[in-house]
Amino acid sequence: MLRIEHLTKRFGDRCAVDDLSLHIAPGEIYGFIGPNGAGKTTTIKSCCGILRFDEGEIYIDGKSIKSDPLGCKRALAYIPDEPDMYEFLSGIKYLNFVADIFGVSKTDREERIHHYADAFELTGDLAQPISAYSHGMKQKLAVIAGLIHAPKLIIMDEPFVGLDPIATHKLRTIMREHCDRGGAIFFSTHVLEVAEKLCDSVAILRQGRLVASGPMEQVRGDASLEEVFLELEERDV
């Protein structure tokens, strides 16, 4: 579903991502972990066509993000770490706007918006302007907006930040259901416990380089993910 091949991105002299290769298969929840500044967000933005990269290639559902960016964007949903949305719109108008952009039919958008808004207990606030939303409510709205067009691949940057425990549980359920239907999820997180419980595979990034990747059991071995992560950090230091 998502294939990253030799991705390299530089900001001036600094190499933010260095020769990164990953493969995320359909039905897989893929966790992306690493310390601050490791290059997670840069990788994610490159995958979503928001950031241009210097070398390598990214394929989404078989399409190249370089040669067919619109085709790739139609197949994916991007949920950023900071849910900065159009604050002058109400929640429902923003969702309807996103549905228009993705060409979602009237029946589908009505059904999906109300289904997910009910699930995240946001229905009662949909008429409110986004400027009146709390951080958590904005995060929920960003998730719903990402799900409206039933994407094949969902790419999320720290999706659990700001969500209450109920919403976190709901999002985890939705993520699992999405992958059970054949979709894939690629997300970054600092919450190693969540990653350990939720992810089928994991990649650990440090200073732009991949230091470990593969199925969760394989990366973790007999230790916990936290122990592996800390050990890799110490080894590099």
């Binding site: 159009y86 309807n96 228009d100 109300h114 229905t123 009146a132």
Partner: peptide, 27 residues
């Protein structure tokens, strides 16, 4: 500003261009 209660209504479907233009006008 009192809370605006959300009432389910039929949603209006627009083209991409109309949606973008509508967003600019609302802004």
């Amino acid at each position: 500003a009192a809370k605006i209660k959300y009432k389910r209504r039929e949603m209006r479907v627009s083209s991409v261009k109309a949606a973008l233009m509508g967003k600019e006008i609302r802004k």
